[in-house]
Design a protein around this nucleic acid. Structure first.
Lengths: 237, 237
DNA sequence: GGAAATTGGTGTACTTTTGACACGAACCCC
DNA sequence: GGGGTTCGTGTCAAAAGTACACCAATTTCC
């Protein structure tokens, strides 16, 4: 940082969390229905958004991301990774966002820069009830995402791209699966994230080389086909 | 973004650019000697820093990164990539940074969040003169970096880590080389960034598969050994 | 003018990884 | 008991990665 520069206007800073979930079939993203419970929530007056909020004066970025996600969704202690800052000067000033901004923000004319985080959640572990007052969060299939507030559509797209990069080299993909999973689920998830089909036998060959993926003494139950062996992921020390 | 949250304190936002250079031998980082020309510049009163400054009210992040780098170093139109935001609440409030902050910042008590960019420059293309008034920039070998202002040592470390990741999959490494380079230089640069030795013949085998790296009708001159074939990098469309 | 020092440049054999490909087994439902 | 569905398995060929040693071209120094 360096400064003959005294032009110092205040910014607001926010976090936006792109939370990916997997239901065994497709990738989903957690969206928030905005407004005040009971008054605006049931209307379509405000666009949906990714869970995010302003950073508090005294908190760090990761800390803020966890707090905000916890407040809006009750998700605690989950995997969260910063992936990009978004700061187009007019990113919150589109007409569509005006009413919400003036209703809920103290300084609606302030420029807002947001730090994007993405996270991965097993949908088995988190099923918000869409119509409950307590939770305003809903899963939305990635392919059916509506027009969102601000630049949140772009943020999701960027988060997805980052997820794709990270899946290959870091074992983050297991965050999206329940504790016990089948190799079929693991393969489908890879296929969905990478956007291409994989060969079953080759895929399994590779997985069996991973010592972190261990078979359990258990099989799938209640499925209408041959039950699959269950596996779990043991984090290396 | 979502908001029952009206606690809205202003942040200052800055950009910090970690500029990597390569001299054929080792990686270097561009540092700025801070203070006012003629008055403070020659003293050691202020810690050195990575080139950075506050973002202006109306400019985007990438735009700000380019402007700031251009202002402080005259480097224009170079490769710049956002890699991480740094926002520890106290990151600018260490005692060592106090005097500079109060001398040069209008609101020295404001929390500052910074967006880190890294860039790659061929040192052949940019040789600041350390003692000139016009340029306050100096190359500093990565291994000899002193204590810097704020959390800039951390920022450099994070930038380097990101560079290591990116080098493997994106052809960014050529930004660090002059237009014409030898395979020896290319290999040394890879070895330095990756921190391990590579086999010469295997390395060359791989490079020769890259259609972007094309041999020129030219050889090295004025070296005290067998002159090497020169190559250049042609960006694919 | 020749020797020493230095980096440039080249090929082969082995191992490992990747990629393509087909069929019987186990379970549910009807 | 038959039909539908997913599970689970092995082999072969091609590609990529890895290990390894010597002569060539230039400068400098004697």
């Amino acid at each position: 940082m360096q400064g003959a520069n005294n032009t110092s206007i205040p910014f607001d800073l926010s976090i936006d969390n792109v939370v990916f979930g997997f239901d065994g079939e497709q990738l989903q993203v957690l969206l928030i229905r905005r407004g005040l419970p009971g008054r605006d929530m049931e209307t379509d007056r405000f666009l949906m958004a990714v869970p995010g909020d302003l950073i508090l004066p005294e908190e760090g970025l990761d800390e803020a991301a966890h707090r905000i996600l916890s407040n809006l969704t009750s998700l605690n202690g989950i995997f969260l990774k910063q992936f990009c800052a978004f700061g187009a000067p007019d990113r919150v000033f589109a007409e569509k966002d005006r009413e919400w901004l003036t209703s809920f923000r103290r300084y609606p004319d302030r420029r807002v820069v947001t730090i994007g985080y993405y996270s991965l959640v097993s949908m088995d572990d988190y099923r918000p009830k869409p119509s409950s007052f307590a939770s305003r969060a809903e899963w939305c299939p990635l392919k059916e995402i509506p027009n969102l507030a601000f630049d949140h559509n772009d943020i999701i797209a960027a988060g997805l791209e980052k997820l794709r990069e990270d899946v290959v080299h870091h074992n983050i993909i297991f965050e999206l699966l329940p504790e016990k999973f089948t190799l079929g689920q693991l393969q489908r998830l890879h296929e969905i994230i990478l956007g291409k089909e994989l060969d079953k036998r080759n895929f399994r060959k590779n997985v069996k080389r991973m010592t972190e993926v261990v078979p359990l003494d258990e099989k799938q139950e209640g499925v209408l086909h041959k039950p699959a062996q269950l596996y779990t992921y043991r984090k290396p020390d």
